[in-house]
Design a protein around this nucleic acid. Sequence first.
DNA 1: AGCCTATTTCGAATTTCTTCGAAATTCGGT
DNA 2: ACCGAATTTCGAAGAAATTCGAAATAGGCT
Lengths: 106, 106
Amino acid sequence: MKLEQAAKQLEALGNPTRLKLYRILVRAGEAGKPVGTLQENLGIAASTLSHHLHRLILTGLVSQERQATTLICRANYPIMRDLVGFLADECCADAASNPAAGEAAA
Amino acid sequence: MKLEQAAKQLEALGNPTRLKLYRILVRAGEAGKPVGTLQENLGIAASTLSHHLHRLILTGLVSQERQATTLICRANYPIMRDLVGFLADECCADAASNPAAGEAAA
DNA sequence: AGCCTATTTCGAATTTCTTCGAAATTCGGT
DNA sequence: ACCGAATTTCGAAGAAATTCGAAATAGGCT
């Protein structure tokens, strides 16, 4: 069920710390950012960051790649695009252009 | 801080029950749906639905209007558009078109 | 092999979410 | 003024999130 997946991703982004984190990664672009830098940027405990990062990774929104001793984190754009697509499709049907409302009342 | 607001809205949508609920409302369009019908659609306790509805309303994603004894709920499209806009702007910067990464490291 | 740095896992405390049923409330009709 | 239907508020219980520090692990360097 796609909805479940979307809900998980939205939940992952629905926390100020994780949203900040994700935004930093998006802005870092292709280059990504090492965990340590993220920690400095956010000013939170390493273990806390690791936890949030893990949640973001579980939903596919972020991915990691080792580079020597540091782990580079990167935003996974296609996943976000899918999510935004879901919101636009399923949930953001334009009120004006979509006089639907039909949809088997019940 | 806009980010806090966005996080709250994402959190509100980041729960399967609320996302289903919101989707139903979006599909109901202008007409909206009364709380009772939503309850039947979702098959949850009235008090639980009321709680979720409240959360959605707090973030501005849903609004209500009385019609005699029933309360009609409607999705608030502009809010969702803003949210999607935020994701697109702040978070979904196209990796290719945005070689940013600058953003004062550390 | 030993060490150092980078990051995760563990254990734990506090807070918040999710859910329900019962009781209270709000509104329109009799 | 009362009744009945539609919703919300209250109270409560169990599950999950958030956060931290300390200890464990991973990887490269000497």
